[in-house]
Design a protein around this nucleic acid. Structure first.
Length: 302
DNA sequence: AAATGCTTCAACCGCGCATGC
DNA sequence: CGCATGCGCGGTTGAAGCATT
């Protein structure tokens, strides 16, 4: 036996609301408030509608201070950032955007924002070759960017799930100054090849974890991605794309570089080689760098 | 101008959770 | 404690409008 229907389906109207229905609902709620019972509201307000339908109509369209129309860049950033951290918890995201409804944000994400990001990801696919082999993605010739930043205390957020890591070196790339993705950026990955370590510098020290178990720690301006998919990465978007969005990950000078370590590059399979490649020896002092890998495990970078 | 395909978004549906009895 | 009920949420649908052929 299933759950009893919330209303008499045969006697309720479905589909778009007429202006008359809107007026009735609005008038009733302005007079009596929404406190009480949505299920009984249609009867009291003389509406042939399901209570849930009334609630939805009020919350998404009729209630005061609803904001319609284009989303601003700032709103885009907030949505992207929050989606990446908490996933499709639209009501939580909506709570951060006054005047926007969860339905609005959900629609916006599904129809526009997601595509916007996919287009960007596609347009910034990094080459399969190692970075120093790519004219398009040259490594910085020096580490002045890193040296310009003060040392920031070590935040240890490495966790036990990191033990599943099996990555090895190295594919590195970086880019910056994109209107949206002005921070460092990882190309789309799949579950199978995600085993990677991402080193990023240029941002502030911080750490974060996502509901899916992913965890990223920034240590002395070097960011370690613990290797679990963030919500955006599940969709093929890079977690660190949003570092510049949120206050706690804002790049100190608006520019970040990142270096990724992948398993498919046999030339670089030790921390020393990684350090040499990306030129961050001086940044990585005193950094305990955990990678669960055949050759690299709990290795001290210093 | 008509047909077809695509996009948008309001609304619906079903499920999980909270609460009250 | 178990059940009934209502609320809130996220996923999905489909009508309407727009774009393209």
């Amino acid at each position: 036996m299933g759950r009893a229907p919330c209303c008499d389906k045969a006697n309720v109207k479905k589909g778009p609301w007429s202006p008359e229905e809107d007026a009735k609902l609005k008038e009733y709620i302005e007079k009596h408030g929404t406190v009480g019972n949505w299920i009984s509201l249609p009867h009291k307000a003389a509406l042939r509608r399901c209570g849930k339908s009334c609630r939805l109509r009020w919350l998404n369209y009729l209630r005061p201070n609803i904001k319609h129309g284009e989303f601003s860049d700032d709103e885009d950033k907030i949505i992207c950032s929050l989606f990446d951290r908490i996933g499709s918890r639209w009501s939580v995201i909506a709570a951060q955007l006054p005047g926007r409804t969860d339905n609005d944000i959900k629609n916006y994400w599904n129809t526009k924002l997601k595509k916007k990001l996919q287009v960007h990801v596609a347009s910034t696919q990094y080459p399969k070759t190692r970075p120093h082999q790519s004219a398009m993605h040259p490594l910085p010739s020096d580490n002045s960017l890193v040296q310009n930043h003060p040392s920031i205390p070590y935040h240890d957020h490495l966790n036990s799930s990191f033990d599943n890591y099996t990555s090895t070196p190295i594919r590195a790339f970086y880019h910056h100054d994109h209107p949206i993705f002005s921070s460092s950026f990882v190309g789309p990955t799949t579950q199978g090849d995600y085993n990677q370590v991402k080193l990023m510098y240029g941002g502030e020290a911080s750490s974060r974890s996502s509901s899916d178990g992913s965890c990223i720690t920034t240590i002395n301006q070097v960011e370690i991605d613990h290797g679990f998919f963030s919500n955006s990465e599940k969709l093929g978007f890079p977690m660190s794309s949003y570092n510049n969005f949120s206050n706690d990950h804002k790049a100190a000078n608006g520019t970040c570089f990142s270096h990724e370590i992948y398993p498919d590059d046999q030339d670089y399979n030790s921390i020393e080689e990684i350090k040499q490649l990306i030129g961050t020896n001086n940044v990585c002092n005193n950094l305990n760098f955990f990678v669960d890998h055949d050759q690299i495990k709990s290795e001290d970078l210093s």
